[in-house]
Structures are given as C-alpha cells and as structure tokens.
Computed example of a mutant assay.
Amino acid sequence: MSPSDLPLVAALLLVAVAATVSVLTRDPVRQAVVLAVLGLLLALLFLLLHAPDVALSQLAVGAAVTPLLILLTARSLRRSAGRDTRGHDDGDSRREGHEGREGREGREGREGGA
C-alpha cells in the first residue's frame, strides 16, 4: 500500500462507519442527518476515485434530496399522529377497526392494559 492510497482507505473506512451508523439509527430525523453525512462521504470517495460526475450526482441526491424527503415525511407523519391522538372522535370507526374505541379500551382493560 502506497502513501497515495491512504486517503482512499480513510474514505472507505469512514463510509463503512457512516453506513453502519445509518442502519443502526432508529430515529428518522437523526437518520436523515446521518444519511446526509454518508452522502457527503460517498461524494468524497467518488472524487478520490476520479469520478467527479458521479460525485456531483451523489451530492445532489444522496446528501440533499434524500435526507430532505426523509425529514419532510417524518414531519408529516408526526403532524398526522398529533391530530389522531388529540382525542377527537369524528365517528369514523374505520380507523379504530370494527370494534371502535370502546371495544378496544375494554379489551385492553381485560388484558391488563397492554
């Protein structure tokens, strides 16, 4: 291994660590941040491999668009979850299943609150 290979080996190790962290991260917001860092590291790796066109594409998609979509989706899901848990009952039993809210609460009481 020559000294000129050291940046490539370092970039490969950083990409491997960032990819592992992104898989192990459970929170979508943190995962989006880790994916953005992973996208930047991959772009750096592609630059080191003399593929500037691929690096530019990786910057646009992997470091910007994908994390942004994940953040927007997480925000949308949290907003819709907030609306569903405010206790408003609009009479739509399809969301509650066939048994409705009273049936589910009764079942949870019999099962010990699980």
Rank of each mutant, 00 (worst) to 15 (best):
S2N: 15
P3G: 09
S4A: 14
D5M: 13
P7W: 05
P7L: 03
P7D: 01
L8Y: 07
L8R: 13
L8N: 03
L8I: 10
A10P: 02
A11R: 06
L12S: 08
L12G: 04
L13F: 04
L14K: 04
V15S: 01
A16M: 08
A16L: 08
A16E: 06
A18L: 15
A18D: 03
T20H: 14
S22K: 07
S22W: 09
V23L: 13
L24W: 13
R26Q: 11
P28L: 11
P28S: 13
R30N: 09
R30Y: 08
V34A: 06
V34F: 06
A36I: 04
A36E: 00
A36N: 02
V37I: 12
V37A: 08
V37M: 06
L38S: 02
G39P: 05
G39Q: 00
L40E: 12
L41V: 10
L41G: 01
L42Y: 09
L44A: 04
F46T: 07
F46M: 14
L49Y: 11
L49H: 11
H50L: 02
P52F: 03
V54W: 07
A55F: 04
A55Y: 04
L56W: 14
L56K: 07
L56Y: 09
S57N: 08
S57K: 12
Q58A: 12
L59F: 14
V61L: 11
A63H: 02
V65T: 08
V65M: 05
V65K: 02
T66V: 15
P67R: 00
P67M: 00
L68T: 15
L69V: 11
L69P: 09
I70T: 09
L71N: 00
L71M: 06
L72M: 10
L72R: 10
L72F: 15
L72S: 13
R75D: 04
L77Y: 11
L77Q: 10
A81G: 05
G82D: 00
G82L: 01
R86W: 00
G87P: 07
G87A: 08
H88E: 04
D89K: 00
G91W: 01
G91V: 06
G91T: 06
D92Q: 01
D92Y: 01
D92W: 01
R107N: 07
R107Y: 14
R110K: 07
R110A: 06
G112D: 04
G113N: 13
G113I: 13
A114M: 09
A114T: 14
A114Y: 09
